[in-house]
Amino acid sequence: MANIVQSTDLTKRRRGLSRRLPTRGPSNIILGIIAIVWLVPTVSLLVISLRPEADFGVSGWWKALLAPSSLTFSNYRVLFDQGFVAGGLLDSLMTSIEITVPATLLVVLFACFAGHSLVFGRWRGRDVVFLIVVGLMVVPVQVALIPVVQFYHELGNLFGLNPYGTIPGVIIFHVAFGLPFGIFLMRNFMSGIPKDLLEAARMEGAGEWKVFYRIVLPLALPALASLAIFQFIWVWNDLLVALVFLGGNAHTPLTVFLYDQNHELQANYWIISTGAIVSVIVPLIVFFSFQRYFVRGVLAGAVK
């Protein structure tokens, strides 16, 4: 594990490598074909979303590649013109954001706190707690669903605040299941921060809180970025938790929007493809802006 993480630097000098591998030409061809195969589904989605609804099923989307002028933004226009009606595309986009942003911020925050405590605290049993956290990383979401739903109802009976069917309910659940990985990542990263730095700060009179946000937090930024991206993408793309916890809520995230369009409302494919493109755009932007951190997160989080 350790050396996997170390070697994230993929640009490391590799002397004489290219020459040693005599199969350059074939590699280029094989990978070229693979690249095309990998690209086709995404392109198809994009093209279908840009084709007039009437063309779907009459001729294949690839025909549109020969007649690019037939493409139009009308599907997008129709869906955006609906505005923020409940169950519409824009409303779902907003709901996705409303769920994902808090769920990401909370996980990052709590994971940083916990990582700090696990690495720089001096209480005994830190290692045991960490191992428990590692164990929790693979717990399937499914195992907790029913009791949590009941727990939510219980909260409603006791305090009159039932998170079931509400957006906070979804967020609470996502935070819990994002934490094990988050703590794992932060602890591993923070244990690489020299303890001397903290001791120096403590000697200058900084309290624990100051040490945390003046020294540990800035140094942990790269890991924090990885975690934030991971959590963001994970929550953004979740279907199951939203399906279960949003119950009859009128506002649903994009994944549920797509699911509903496909199942309950039966294949308005122009809506599905347009919605899918909208749902994919946000994580793609995140991915391309922070690709390095994303890859680092993948390498560090190979256990999730």
Partner: peptide
């Protein structure tokens, strides 16, 4: 090749 990881599985499935 990495790109599809960031798509939601729902979107990928429908594609």
């Amino acid at each position: 090749i990495v790109m599809p990881i960031v798509f939601s599985t729902t979107a990928s499935a429908l594609v």
